[in-house]
Design a protein around this nucleic acid. Structure first.
Length: 445
RNA sequence: GGCCCUAUCGUCUAACGGUUAGGACAUCGCCUUUUCAAGGCGGUAAUCAGAGUUCGAUUCUCUGUAGGGUCACCA
């Protein structure tokens, strides 16, 4: 007998901007489906007209687009009322559910709702990560499954849809374990097979409480896009929150994650969302990007006022690639770094305090002598060969003959950047080019 | 509070009865081509507690403790 085709789903409700915590469940379902050549379904759970908004649906669709998590089918529960109605009627006929007269306790309540006739039994089910679980459903009472025949509620629509869509595996957070028994009761009532459950760890904030939309720690997913995080970085980080492949490799591409993913290695204890580790994951992936791609991101984040500077050029930025990349963990920091003025020296001759040109105890004469030596050495280098390697080679020759390399290196660096802290003089020289470099050195004399 | 789940460095985790308890992030120190960054090397740091079972428990059992989840005419 051939294996049943794996079908997983992710079912967000469009009641707010989809926040990062939710990405993990989506990812696990996606990974599992892809790994088993199955199907991954995205289902919009918008049965609550009061809270559901189309803009939020668009929002999570954009998140999926950005992350590159492709889904094979898309459903909207608000368009499926006829299907739910059919099941509701059938269950009504079978007397498994009933219309119940209600006492109105709160505003907005209805005098009639549809309740599930609870068989009051012990429901036992197996969970791929938690093991065997057992619940007494008596305490649930005859829970409400629909407001009326046209307005089914969450537990009912989930079960009907999972059945109709032939969902084989339900991978979700442990906050859903207590929902599972009542969903199983409904499954049994409509004659649906039981899917395989895998309840992963809950994602926690720094206070060890479940991550909520209000946590400043996590933000709507697209903010990460706007801040220049990479899908690869975010996905890699999320995958490792509550799951790991074993072994010591940590940087995985999406393809590698698909390959490595397994339910057995999902974690039981809650996992704290650690933004610092996200930064690290993102940086690792950012380093892996091809140069062209890195530049594309960088150009996106360079502030407009920098781009309109007279001496701004794409070539300069291309030359700056290395120093730009090594100082960031996500591309949004490019913007910040330019805004602090850190790179102003690239575009114009810096103003600086002349006394800072002197290295420790050296005199003005020594400084001038060293700079003069530097200028003549640099003039030997052809403009087309003016690379950091060549500059370094020629400067180090002189620097090594001095009592301290700093005697030369410091004034050179400082005259080029005018800053206490900056990249090394060789790379700056390369970025500036031969003419500008020599001109700044002459100015320092 | 009822029901349920969980428990290894600060954090994410490895170990599926026998390891000097491993890795990564963070942190600290050192090195390098002055500074910054990056990089390299190294250090600090954990089995919640108490009983069992066993020749031997991080690992199995029980109890305690501590965390967490969930208890809607939301999803």
């Amino acid at each position: 007998m051939s294996e049943q085709k794996v079908i997983t789903r992710f079912a967000p409700s469009p009641t707010g901007k989809f926040h990062v915590g939710g990405i993990r469940s989506a990812l696990y379902n996606y990974l599992y489906a892809r790994k088993h050549n199955g199907k991954f379904i995205l289902r919009c759970e918008d049965t609550d007209p009061a809270r559901s908004k189309k803009e939020y649906e668009d929002y999570f669709i954009n998140v999926f687009k950005w992350l590159g998590l492709e889904y094979d089918e898309f459903f909207r529960q608000s368009e499926r009322t006829e299907i739910y109605k059919k099941y509701l009627h059938k269950l009504l006929e079978e007397d498994k559910i009933y219309i119940s007269k209600e006492e109105i306790k709160e505003e907005g309540q209805r005098s009639e709702v549809i309740r599930f006739r609870n068989p009051n039994k012990i429901v036992t089910f197996h969970d791929e990560v938690l093991g065997d679980l057992s619940f007494n459903t008596t305490e649930l009472g005859d829970f409400i499954i629909a407001r009326d025949i046209e307005s089914p509620l969450y537990h009912f629509t989930v079960v009907v849809d999972d059945f109709e869509m032939n969902i084989t595996h339900i991978i979700r957070g442990q906050e859903h374990v207590s929902n599972t028994p009542r969903q199983i009761l409904i499954q049994e009532a409509i004659g649906a097979p039981r899917p395989i459950y895998a309840h992963g760890s809950v994602i926690l904030n720094e206070e060890r409480a479940k991550l909520s939309k209000r946590d400043p720690l996590v933000r709507p997913s697209l903010e990460y896009k706007d801040e220049g995080y990479l899908p690869e970085g975010l996905l890699n980080f999320m995958a490792f929150l509550g799951w790991n492949p074993g072994g010591e490799k940590e940087i995985y591409t999406l393809k590698e994650l698909i390959n490595a993913f397994s339910l057995e290695r999902m974690q039981k204890p809650g996992a704290i969302f650690n933004p610092e580790k996200l930064e690290w994951f993102n940086k690792e992936h950012l380093k892996l990007l091809p140069k062209e791609k890195q530049l594309e991101y960088i150009f996106e984040f360079i502030p407009e006022n920098i781009k309109s500077l007279p001496n701004y050029s794409k070539e300069k930025i291309e030359n700056m690639l290395n120093i730009l990349i090594e100082r960031i963990t996500h591309f949004g920091q490019i913007k910040e770094n330019f805004e602090t003025g850190e790179y102003n020296f690239v575009f114009s001759q810096p103003e600086y305090d002349k006394t800072k040109l002197l290295y420790k105890t050296s005199t003005v004469e020594q400084k001038n002598e060293n700079i003069n030596k530097t200028i003549s050495a640099l003039q030997e280098i052809l403009e087309s060969n003016f690379t950091k390697e060549n500059v370094k080679e020629s400067l180090m020759k002189i620097a090594d003959s001095l009592p301290s390399r700093g005697e030369l290196l410091h004034p050179v660096r400082f005259s080029l950047s005018g800053m206490d802290k900056s990249p090394d003089p060789f790379i700056i020289a390369e970025i500036l080019g031969k003419n500008e470099t020599i001109s700044r050195l002459q100015k320092a004399l």
